[in-house]
Nucleic acid binder design. Structure first.
Length: 465
RNA sequence: GGACUGGUAGCUCAAUUGGUUAGAGCAUCUGCCUGUCACGCAGAAGGUUGCGGGUUCAAGUCCCGUCCAGUCCGCCA
């Protein structure tokens, strides 16, 4: 198969080529027919004249069918050049048209899907992803992946994979559980984040870790929340708050400069607000500091730092506002138990872009004695602590370096940078608001045999569509 | 779990105060057209108005219930 891509056609005038792609549009003038053939890189116009063996085939071919066209690349006359397409200086005089795979009547038109019901788009996601907008989002995501891997590698960070079948975490979001076949009645959990693993990797002496990693949280959704989502997860040893902030800031700014050069920053250098300042001034811990919210290229980035360590729960007791391993600021460590819990500040920081929480992290407590005091303050019993965090606390007895890190909400970051207002637009195969995938039709029922092997009986519930 | 908005042709929408046979654009099909590039023109086909019930001479429209979607609140260490 000797294929020529549409993006390379301009330089091939006079040559006989074969292009492969989808029929983007068809214009039949009775005695002359034009087909626009689209491949991943662009579009080329194919001319079919009467007398051509395939004239009737060209008249009949449906939009979005897969075809190949062989013919000579011809320069277009000056007045017929089309600057809107990549091969607009030339066109192909078809000698042979082959319909490789015809396309049925489409469920929606692909030129503009902005008004199409999202469930319909998701049901036919493979068609939705053919659109320029979605394709561009995928390309940008790929480029960003490459950039981040490169950037962090150059800084000495190792990309290390952590398990997806792991242990249910006691606090935080609801877990997705995976039943164990070998251990009757036992369950794995999908990770809400690789938090404990990345801390263990610091004890392992890795010093600098990163991973572009999937996380799972079984909570109700929002436009900026999915049950599975991707984080750029980072953790490093012998660092303080400023090191992590600087690293993240430079990474994000370089990423924007390289892959989204049309974007500009309103606030430079990136300001750092304390949590208290943000709440007092903007009544939110993720303020949108843009000057003109209609300017799609404006980015207002800021840090929110000095988060409170604890927050009051509904029953009046206190829980960790981030997680229990977050380090308390030095000036509060000595006797935080005796102070107003809501005034105890943690070494915790969030990156906010245009009102979106795009990253969050903290320095962790490496002092086992302090950790124990935090757990006791949070009213965990000794047995409780041992069961939930024993493995981590044990590891902390074998030489734990001071460490800290951050996790970038990657889908949210890409959502902002791609001018989308929903993370589903930057995720190739997302779930709907109630956690379904209309394309694969998941979740779904499974055979009784499968359940039996997993030692599971189910309660009958009313069946959702 | 709660609030709000919505559900009418394959897709996007319209339908006045409850009143004739529920319309339009695009897509589809048929015909015409040799330079268009989202081609154009003419025509055809396409509807259980999400579903169930109620009020009324009459319901897409009002009422009740229910299902679904989106957004937000709760939730998201």
């Amino acid at each position: 198969m000797n294929r020529v891509l549409t993006k390379n056609l301009n330089g091939l005038v006079g040559e006989k080529v074969t292009v492969f792609g989808w029929v983007n549009s068809k214009r039949n003038h009775g005695k002359i027919t034009f087909l626009d053939i689209r491949d991943r890189y662009g579009i080329v116009q194919v001319v079919i004249l009467p007398g051509n063996n395939d004239y009737e085939k060209a008249e009949k071919v449906s939009i979005e069918s897969v075809v190949s066209v062989t013919g000579e690349v011809v320069k277009r006359p000056e007045n017929l050049v089309n600057k809107n397409i990549i091969s607009g200086d030339v066109e192909i005089q078809s000698e042979k048209l082959e319909v490789i795979s015809p396309c049925d009547k489409l469920p929606f038109e692909l030129d503009d899907t902005s008004g199409v019901l999202e469930e319909t788009r998701l049901k036919y996601r493979y068609l939705d992803l053919r659109t320029k907008r979605m394709k561009q989002n995928l390309i940008n995501r790929h480029k960003s992946n490459q950039f981040i891997r490169n950037y962090l590698s150059k800084k000495g960070y190792l990309e290390i994979e952590t398990p997806l079948l792991t242990k249910s975490t006691p606090e935080g979001a609801r877990d997705f559980l995976v039943p164990s076949r070998n251990q009757a009645g036992m369950f794995y959990a999908l990770p809400q984040s690789p938090q404990q693993y990345k801390q263990l990797l610091q004890i392992a002496g890795i010093e600098k870790y990163f991973q572009i990693v999937r996380n799972f949280r079984d909570e109700d959704q929002r436009g900026d929340r999915q049950p599975e989502f991707t984080q750029v997860d980072i953790e490093a040893s012998f660092v303080d708050e400023k090191n992590i902030i600087k690293l993240t800031e430079n990474l994000v700014l370089e990423l924007i400069k390289t892959i989204y050069p049309e974007k500009y920053l309103t606030l430079t250098p990136i300001p750092r607000l304390t949590h208290k300042e943000a709440m007092e001034k903007y009544q939110t811990d993720r303020p949108d500091l843009r000057k003109n919210k209609n300017d799609k290229n404006e980015l207002a980035i800021c840090w929110v730092v000095d988060f409170p360590m604890f927050e009051k729960k509904e029953d009046g007791s206190f829980g960790p506002s981030h997680h229990p391993f977050t380090a308390i600021k030095k000036e509060f460590v000595e006797d935080f138990e005796k102070q107003d819990p809501e005034k105890v500040i943690a070494q915790q920081y969030d990156l906010v872009i245009n009102g979106n929480e795009v990253a969050g992290g903290s320095i962790r407590t490496h002092d086992v004695a302090v950790l124990k005091r935090v757990f006791e303050f949070l009213d965990h019993s000794q047995a409780d602590i041992e069961e939930k965090f024993g493995h981590l606390l044990k590891a902390f007895k074998f030489g734990v370096p001071p460490h800290g890190g951050i996790a970038i909400g990657y889908d949210r970051l890409l959502m902002v940078l791609n001018n989308e207002n929903n993370i589903r637009e930057v995720i190739p195969f997302p779930k709907t608001g109630d956690g379904r995938d209309p394309l694969m039709d998941s979740p779904c029922r499974v055979d009784k045999k499968q359940l039996d092997e997993l030692h599971i009986t189910t309660q009958d519930r009313k069946r959702k569509k």
